[in-house]
Amino acid sequence: MRAAVLPLALVLAILASLMIGQLPVGPMALLHGALTGDGTGALVLKVIRGPRVMTAVGAGAALGLSGALFQTLFRNPLAAPDIMGFTSGSGLAIVVAVAAGLTLPVPLVAAAGGLVAAVLVALLAWRPGHSTPPLTLVLVGLGIGFATSALSSFALTSLPLNEAAEAQRWLTGSLNARAWDHAAQVWLALAMLAVLALSQLRPLEALELDSDLATGLGIRADRARWAIAAIAVLLAAAAVAVAGPVPFVALMAAPVGIRLARARDLKGRLMSGAMAGALILTLADLAAQAALPGVALPVGVATGLFGAPYLLWRLSREMKKGGL
């Protein structure tokens, strides 16, 4: 019973996102459009909202899976690519590439930016002879986030106004003007990386329990850790490449999903993280567009507004448990 909650909610959210908007369509028109390929239903599905909603679902799932992987790997609910500065690294790389007039493919630029940020965080948090506590990674990641946002605002102040407006949208996280190739791109990346993530299930399971145990089971702990972290960074970068560094989705997805689905085993938890991420991003985009009539806010504004209170609540809970 519980396992059906998330898929059902996701389907409902997708349907609602398809129907609500400047040009409202009813369920029958949507069905008619899907079956016959003409009418307003088909127009909405094919051109207006179909690609946007599919991009939202794919990017949200990628962010959710990325957050679930990090949180499992570091055994810490605060470990997420958005908190640790990886998504802002990707976002900055994209803005810099656009400002410099480079014609590299956006996903590659995003992946490079995210990986550079992640390696920087790992290196700067590393102390010879000590194991790195996850909270140090989180704090160092925040510091990297400060540096990237300073560079981003430098880019914003040196660009001409129309490009600055575009860059501001990008840095906030937006699903505006998404086409089918964006959706295809993020889904392809998600599929490949999800398969890779599933191949690391056993090492991840062992690492979550104990890295000594993992070594005992014949797993090379450090190598597995790096591989899983790289997969998670790339997942986040794939989402940033189509939607910008949307804040807090990766942080919230896994805890929300696991609670809704009551998932216990690792695979179930990762899956519910991905589905919850898709659900959150789809609903946030719907809310951002419908909040003010006539104005389409970027989705990052909505996730920022309800993600921040979540983070505060999570902090006070961790505090009570004595984790901070």
């Binding site: 605060l78 908190i83 909270l135 989180v138 704090l139 925040l142 986030g145 501001q168 949208r169 906030t172 804040p247 807090f248 806010l297 970027p298 990052g300 504004v301 909505a302 996730t303 920022g304 507004l305 993600g307 921040a308 209170p309 983070l311 505060l312 902090l315 961790e318 505090m319 901070l324």
Partner: peptide, 23 residues
């Protein structure tokens, strides 16, 4: 850690509001 993250959350929330206004 907690104080810094609480600040980061507050920053993020206010930034969202400001970018909504600006946009």
């Amino acid at each position: 850690v907690r104080l810094t993250l609480a600040g980061a959350a507050l920053n993020a929330m206010l930034l969202s509001l400001v970018s909504a206004i600006v946009l």
